[in-house]
């Protein structure tokens, strides 16, 4: 093989390597891009009961009185949070298009202030897209003082396009601690105390 051929080969190898590296970087970036993409995809399609957390406009004067749907509320506690989450009613029955308001009570039962966050989930997932909330505490991080109790309303409606086979919609809120913030908070308290002393 002549020197020229060899150089042609080497150039080809270099080109192939660079293209491969570009593809690698692209795929690595793609894997990370999948995280937000999945999120968007879930919100659009309702996979996993991920709900849209932004406040939505409620549509009025459009109630479908031909059918009733039961909406259940379940509250749960993740581990490590000295809070209690209550809902004033376990279930409501309403027409698609009708607006309803349900109060949730958050109480901090510890002797220190904490941050927490309520993670929502909806089932069946065909219903997820049809739950509209105008005010909601989903995913929002909340701070409660020691022993504090706060009521928060959930104002929502099911839109009229709710598939007919859905007769019960279940909303679950699981309360989780926001560890980092709480730790910072408590560290801060100790610092302050130290300063005074």
């Amino acid at each position: 093989m002549s020197q020229d051929d060899n150089e042609v080969r080497q150039a080809g190898v270099r080109r192939t390597v660079w293209r491969s590296v570009a593809a690698l970087v692209g795929m690595f970036a793609f894997a990370w891009a999948l995280v937000p993409l999945y999120d968007v995809f879930c919100r659009v399609t309702g996979i996993n009961g991920q709900v849209d957390t932004t406040a939505q406009a409620l549509v009025h004067d459009d109630v479908d009185e031909s059918r009733m749907v039961t909406v259940q509320f379940i509250t749960r506690n993740g581990s490590g949070l000295p809070w209690r989450l209550d809902v004033e009613t376990r279930q409501v029955r309403l027409h698609p298009g009708q607006t309803s308001e349900v109060n949730f009570t958050f109480s901090n039962q510890s002797r220190s202030e904490n941050w927490a966050r309520a993670v929502p989930s909806v089932t069946p997932n065909t219903a997820t897209r049809h739950v509209r909330k105008s005010s909601c505490f989903c995913f929002e991080e909340q701070l409660l003082q020691a022993g504090e109790r706060v009521e928060m309303p959930l104002v929502f409606q099911l839109d009229r396009d709710l598939p007919p086979e859905v007769t019960t919609v279940t909303l679950v809120y699981t309360l989780y601690p926001v560890e980092g913030k709480t730790q910072k908070l408590q560290a801060g308290v100790k610092l302050d105390e130290g300063g005074e002393a």
Partner: peptide, 18 residues
């Protein structure tokens, strides 16, 4: 009491509150 009732986050110790 706090550990039993509320659990410890990030570990296998769950909350037994409910």
């Amino acid at each position: 009491k706090d550990v039993i009732i509320n659990g410890v986050s990030g570990t296998a110790m769950p909350s037994f509150r409910t």
